[in-house]
């Protein structure tokens, strides 16, 4: 299980569930941004990383290594009101799951962003905008995304199974939804499988407070609500990801789950990098 790498023959499927509820408007620790802005920036950063990984030749488009979905839940800027819709805008909005080549050529905008050394700026693409409003229909998000993940898996049985990463700041407000609670919806989602194993569900809990971060825990001990519930629905990290994490000098104990509590900006990006990488870490 979990031995496939991403290739054009065996594409990967990476789906983000992005909390766009009203509470995401709060400041994110001491980052100077709201949680909505921070989460959108992190998702954009990972989408850019996936595009960069898929860029191979001079003048070429991206290779089709990945299919991507970003489902926003909470406010729906497109349809209005509360619910679930694709958070990818513009030309991508019509497709719940899009291939990297299409993502590559259809960012919403190219914006200037300070580089790490804060001296120069880079021009980087943006696909997801930070918005927030309404409550937190997380179960509905899994129901909607699950349909597309299920369909994708049925067409990619030879692939690494879908990776679903949920980014939220709080309590689910629609459990039970359609007769099933959050745990049941998560169980349904992770029962989707390819020949290489069951789908993976990882959870990222953001907090406005600067409490201690807990990344890749092996138990829910000491986690305040909704930590234990989110830990409970998070998949164990496959061996390849454990190796990748350790290769990036992140401590991961055996039995760790794909869950992070009180993630700050740096941790969020690190978590996403580890959780979306399955190929051998070669450092090159």
């Amino acid at each position: 299980m979990y031995e496939q790498t991403f290739s054009r023959t065996n594409q990967g499927c990476i789906v983000f569930l992005l909390d766009r509820s009203d509470s995401m408007k709060h400041q994110w620790q001491s980052s100077g941004t709201t949680m909505a802005q921070g989460a959108a920036r992190a998702v954009n950063k990972i989408l850019l990383d996936l595009c960069v990984k898929s860029a191979k030749e001079v003048g070429g488009t991206a290779r089709h290594y990945f299919d991507i979905g970003v489902f926003g839940y909470g406010i729906r800027p497109g349809a209005g009101g509360e619910g679930v819709e694709s958070a990818l805008g513009g030309a991508l909005a019509a497709n719940p799951i899009v291939g990297i080549p299409k993502l590559f050529t259809n960012p919403l905008a190219i914006v200037a962003e300070p580089s790490i050394d804060a001296v120069a700026t880079s021009r980087v693409p943006v696909w997801v905008e930070p918005v927030h409003g309404y409550r937190t229909p997380m179960c509905q998000a899994i129901a909607v995304a699950g349909e597309h993940v299920f369909d994708w898996a049925s067409r990619h049985m030879g692939s690494f199974p879908p990776i679903i990463i949920n980014i939220t700041d709080g309590m689910v407000t629609d459990s039970p939804y359609d007769g099933a609670d959050l745990t049941e919806w998560a169980s349904r989602l992770t029962s989707i499988e390819t020949d290489d194993g069951p789908a993976l569900l990882f959870n990222i809990f953001l907090s406005p407070t600067g409490a201690a971060e807990v990344m890749f825990p092996t138990s829910a001990n000491g986690l305040p609500d909704p930590g234990p519930e989110l830990f409970g629905i998070s998949s164990p990290l496959p061996k390849t990801m454990v190796a990748n994490a350790r290769g990036s000098h992140v401590r991961v104990d055996d039995g760790a789950r794909g869950f992070v509590f009180n993630a700050g900006p740096g941790t969020l990006v690190k978590f996403l990098e580890i959780g979306t990488r399955v190929a051998d870490l070669r450092g090159r």
Binding site: G78, A79, E85, S86, V144, E147, F150, M157
Partner: peptide, 25 residues
């Protein structure tokens, strides 16, 4: 774009995928 929620089939009740003929050549 609005994604269909109500009209979605019960994908969670459809059982495991039929892997027949989907394995690599």
């Amino acid at each position: 774009m609005v994604l269909p929620v109500d009209a979605a089939p019960s994908w969670w009740n459809q059982g495991p995928h039929d892997a027949t003929n989907r394995r690599p050549a």
